[in-house]
Design a protein around this nucleic acid. Structure first.
Lengths: 330, 330
DNA sequence: CTTTTTTTGGAAAACGTTTTCCAGGCGTGA
DNA sequence: TCACGCCTGGAAAACGTTTTCCAAAAAAAG
């Protein structure tokens, strides 16, 4: 592969001149510019990013760590960030933490080692990710998206889970549903906790017994399928199931129908997130639409502000989501 | 941030000793090892990947370019590759070409500039990607996955589209379906072309008129929805629709049912790829299961073989897929 | 006790750029 | 004509590592 030295020799100029032409950092006579460009083209020269970044002490690269690359919901956020990064002339290095705090730590360290100038993270554990983030924060700006981390002073952007759950419950109440229950995920991430707590506290005002009907498992279709059977086995069934996310809702709907029940006739089911699947399940799922564009855009804005050197105090932004009514809630 | 020089000073040894302890390239006395490790820990030292890779002239990094990061089907391949890379101690840089040959070229160049040691590409255009791949091939080994490129000597791993389509048609024939039609995508990628050609040629043997009933659009749900209406408007409808992929099949099923037809009672519909959605659509979609693990594993194996320096002639591997029968084909 | 071999540590070169610093040439104004 | 500033080009330093090369010390062999 051709080095800058080869280009210089081919063009009959110094190494410095080649660099100047290629980076455009200083004026160069037309004569040498043409010679350099011709030589570079002829040799198929390509700047060595490693050497360049090392010398410039700037990588113009951002790192992003998400819990699971196979989850389309996170990918939507990745695309927002990627777009903003491109617009600012930055590249994005994407990593998958596989929802594991050890892997997450390794990924963050790899990013820091690669001298990224900022990190966007969707932490995989409300508590377990704190130490990793703190470590990263000592070197570069870090912004968390979608899920928050406790006891750490940093920019955090997420959806207002409480507002979403309240909208769902109000909607169900408006449809004269009285006996509710909640199927969510165990409390390792903030979204799971916040949605559950919002349900428990808000439903108490409408129907105290409903506040006790809470099943916790994972944010998966499989858990939804299991949970449906447990709900049916549990004495008199509710007339509405509020789910922690859309996957759970899809699983519940599938099992309920397999057991001969009508959704929403017998039981209404609602989701959270508004993933694409919602429109394909039958009946289509009533859910809370995540303002992904806003979350992503705001996250990128905050991160770049830090990179520029803002000293504004770390802020926790909560974006209010929109209710999407479909067939599953009657 | 602490440099190796700082660690050396803190530990009271030379820079060389620090490097030797940290990389383990040469034996070092226990005394200095302990001093170095303590100093590194104390200062929170982290090796600068840029400097290290530049000096070593090795990045232990692979690049991967896929047409669309939002497509779960490609992500499954990414995960296979990522796994193999990790196993070999390599990291993976993932890029999205947004199905555009210009972006694809930019991404490939960025990867080469970052000195990746090999590239895995799912090309976005059967012809338009050729020049980009040729350029990359001059510097590092390149392997294509899932889609092939014409007129280029390189390792290419893909599913045997022809075998898949034949399995589908045989299956439908076994269910006494006689009037078939095909809904696929326009011929910019090899999979679109191969599936269409396989249909046209193989169906001719069973029912020549069916070979003429071909609609081409895009690999999307939306195109499936439009295509369904065109099929219905086109005189006497077929009794089975063979689709170029699952998304098209999902769109067709949705529209057919919306128009009051029964699937598979009136018309059978089949897909290709076996994406997760297949099991959620009603009726669940009969399709061809992509051997993604095999494709990914074989691709990684081939790439690493090249990186090791094999001089075996470039091979084109075609993996035979499996038919998955579900409700949509009756 | 000497000689040879092995082990360990440090100085310095090297990786491929960018950028600082310096110098020569040239034009301009006095 | 001289003084001054501007434009351009090259030499060399710098970025932070790894690794070669050399030397000294220690161990082994005679």
């Amino acid at each position: 592969m051709a080095k800058i030295r080869d280009v210089a020799r081919e063009a009959g100029v110094s190494i410095a001149s080649v660099s100047r032409v290629l980076t455009g950092t200083r004026q160069v006579s037309n004569e040498t510019r043409i010679a350099v460009l011709a030589a570079a083209e002829k040799l198929g020269y390509r700047t060595n990013y490693l050497a360049s970044a090392l010398r410039r002490q700037a990588t113009r690269t951002l790192g992003m760590v998400i819990p699971r690359i196979a989850n389309p919901y996170f990918i939507a956020l990745v695309q927002m960030i990627e777009e903003s990064a491109q617009a600012q002339g930055y590249e994005l290095l994407l990593c998958d933490s596989t929802d594991d705090t050890d892997t997450e730590r390794r990924r963050v360290r790899a990013l820091l080692s690669r001298q990224v100038e900022g990190i966007i993270i969707i932490p995989c554990d409300e508590k377990g990710s704190a130490e990793t983030v703190r470590e990263a924060l000592r070197e570069v700006p870090v912004v968390s998206l979608d899920r928050s981390i406790r006891g750490i002073a940093m920019d955090q952007i997420c959806v207002d889970n409480r507002a979403g759950i309240i909208a769902i419950i109000d909607h169900l109440a408006g449809k004269a549903r009285r006996r509710l229950c909640f199927v969510g995920a165990r409390q390792t991430v903030s979204t799971a906790r916040e949605r559950m707590e919002a349900y428990r506290e808000y439903v108490r005002e409408l129907d105290p017994p409903s506040a006790g009907r809470i099943w916790l498992g994972e944010f998966t279709v499989e858990w939804g399928e299991q949970a449906a059977d447990r709900i049916l086995a549990d004495g008199s069934p509710p007339d509405a199931v509020v789910c922690g996310n859309d996957l759970i809702a899809a699983g519940i709907i599938r099992t309920l129908r397999a057991r001969g029940l009508d959704v929403p006739g017998d039981i209404a089911v609602t989701g959270f997130d508004d993933i694409e699947l919602c429109r394909f399940v039958e009946p289509a799922i009533t859910t809370v639409h995540q303002p992904l564009s806003d979350i992503g855009a705001e996250g990128a804005r905050k991160l770049f502000a830090r990179i520029e050197g803002t000293s504004a105090p770390p802020a926790r932004v909560r974006i209010v989501p929109r209710l999407v009514v479909r067939a599953s809630s009657g």
